[in-house]
Nucleic acid binder design. Structure first.
Lengths: 335, 335
DNA sequence: TGCGCCTATAACCTGACGGCATGGACGTGG
DNA sequence: CCACGTCCATGCCGTCAGGTTATAGGCGCA
């Protein structure tokens, strides 16, 4: 009895949500597509899995039997895939490192230099991820370690360590009225349209839209982008503004985009992340140590709030919108 | 990372066979299809699984990692499916019984009557299977028990008990020269074209073509059929002859088809089969007991060779060809 | 009675998967 | 030395499965 694992994930989603409509939203597919897929799963197995009603989809007895074991199978499968990918890197002595945007800023070259010194024969393969992939491939086993902004979705199943902290600024079109100010109050930005990350990034998108700081005030989405370049263009073209680490002013300077400090907004943390499966892996742990030793600038405190000891510090994080993976979030729009 | 389990079975087959060509034969697909599928699996995972050479496909390091764990995942999945199907039957108090052709002949009604007596409230659901499914759905978990001809493929992973034995006869077109004989020697039939079961039935097909008794002499396939009705038509229309249990003369009498005893050919055994998982299931075990108590005719010995204590005994088994799931088998033809 | 919440169906489009035929690489045997 | 066998790869094409949008239908509720 052959089935696509995607079909199994569909099944689990419907079983958990209790309705096709909600499950369809969560899976980013249309409701009719789900209807058909579930029906097909039932005919393929020759077993009725749900009883339909106006109130939703309720598991039958065999459905419950399936729902009990399928999630375990799926995590097993994901685990197997991760192991295979991992073996691929090990075989050629490559440590795969994912990162988002400018990674650890000026610290990045220091870290990889140090890693090369400690592990002769090994190579660190740096792979930039898009914002639809907030764990930079770590969750999928595409990389062994990742340099990224904390917090990020899926963080609880991984290990993380903070390298340094920097303030969140705002990026706006140069012609924007507020661009004239040297310091902008968060409250003045609340009603602006924002350039956001794609919905798949979940609440990470919310984090960079400062949803938590808005007291329920809804976010206006002016554009959705997946990479720094599109993001810069969207801002320069006036589709919206976006929060960004202060370091973005150095790494992502561009005509038409102006960066300004924001008051009333918490800082951003840069960290290194790895899989618990690599807690005892000497190579990965070496890399983590390199990050901790050389990530913070000289004299910088890993947990500290100091904006910049070695020149102005900042990086560009992804912009986001309201989380679509939590029911009840504000609606997302598209440029 | 979503994949069709079929793709995983493809992968396992290639890993085990060591060449695409052989694996393709075993999977009943073309070699180019396999080439493409394996390539797709590799790109989906982002990992090279095989190193290609003129001698075949050799697993890479990550390929080995995968090959080690995938078979386990597949059997787990099959197991889960079986459990779900099983739960479906239990929920409505139905014992699903698969059978092939005439099942246990005249004993069948006795068995289900006795089961109804022992298990009030339960119903035995009899499901006829095609010959492409020699375990009558037991291997897939579609049924809880099965009445079928022994031996059958997959038998070693299931439980079986013999009910009775009957001679193998031959079915031929009424106009066939040999139809005039009262008893036909096996050797006289060797070069006749045969009506066979589909290749998926593996060596069960071979069994009914008496491949083992031919000393390597190749089989001529005149037609391939999947059900008793097609089988009778094929014989009546002269596409070939076929071996059949003696009881077929009673259960599958038809103008144009004549049944004759064969000398020099071993008998056929009828048995009941069930899954080891049901060794302790009271309902299944009750059914098995009904079979053993009421399967053999009065005074008939379950292991005995007695052709008929209660009138002429026989049933129609499926015809088959040479096993295509063993490399080197004769080519299969089509009507 | 109209609205809102479900699920199911219809019509349509695209892409994946399978088949056949063929090509290219390489070793073997007459 | 060339013809052949055995691998895997590629191109072309038909079919079907999966997705989309639009819409229908059942039922509770204000």
């Amino acid at each position: 009895m052959d089935v696509d694992t995607r079909l199994l994930r569909y099944f689990v989603a419907v079983a958990e949500e209790g309705t096709l409509t909600r499950a369809a939203e969560r899976l980013f597919v249309s409701q009719p597509a789900l209807t058909k897929q579930i029906k097909q799963l039932e005919t393929r197995l020759g077993v009725r899995l749900f009883t339909r009603s106006r109130t939703g989809m309720a598991l039958t007895e065999p459905g419950r039997a399936l729902a009990e074991r399928v999630p375990g199978l799926l995590t097993d499968w994901d685990q197997v895939v991760r192991e295979a990918k991992r073996a691929a890197g090990r075989a050629v002595r490559v440590l795969r490192v994912g990162f988002l945007a400018s990674a650890a800023n000026e610290a990045t070259p220091r870290i990889i230099t140090e890693f090369a010194r400690r592990r002769p024969g090994w190579r660190a393969d740096m792979r930039q991820a898009t914002w639809s992939n907030p764990s930079a491939g770590l969750a999928d086993g595409d990389v062994d370690a990742a340099l990224l902004r904390l917090p990020f979705p899926g963080q609880d199943t991984l290990r993380t360590a903070v390298l340094f902290t920097e303030p969140r600024w705002v990026a706006l079109p140069t012609g924007h009225p507020l661009a004239a100010c040297d310091l902008i109050a968060f409250d003045d930005l609340r009603d602006e349209p924002f350039v956001a990350a794609p919905p798949e990034s979940g609440w990470w998108r919310d984090h960079w839209l400062a949803v938590d700081e808005r007291d329920g005030h809804p976010v206006t989405i002016g554009a959705v982008t997946d990479q720094p370049d599109d993001w810069l263009s969207a801002i320069a073209n006036g589709y919206g503004i976006a929060f960004a680490p202060a370091s973005a002013a150095r790494f992502y300077a561009r005509p038409g985009v102006t960066y300004r400090p924001v008051s009333g907004l918490g800082p951003s943390r840069v960290g290194v992340a790895w899989s618990p499966a690599d807690d005892t892996d000497p190579v990965v742990q070496d890399f983590v140590r390199c990050c901790l030793d050389h990530g913070p600038g000289p004299g910088e405190n890993p947990a500290g709030d100091a904006p910049r000891p070695n020149g102005p510090p900042h990086t560009p994080p992804p912009p986001n919108t309201t989380g679509t993976d939590r029911p009840g979030g504000p609606a997302s729009a598209r440029a």
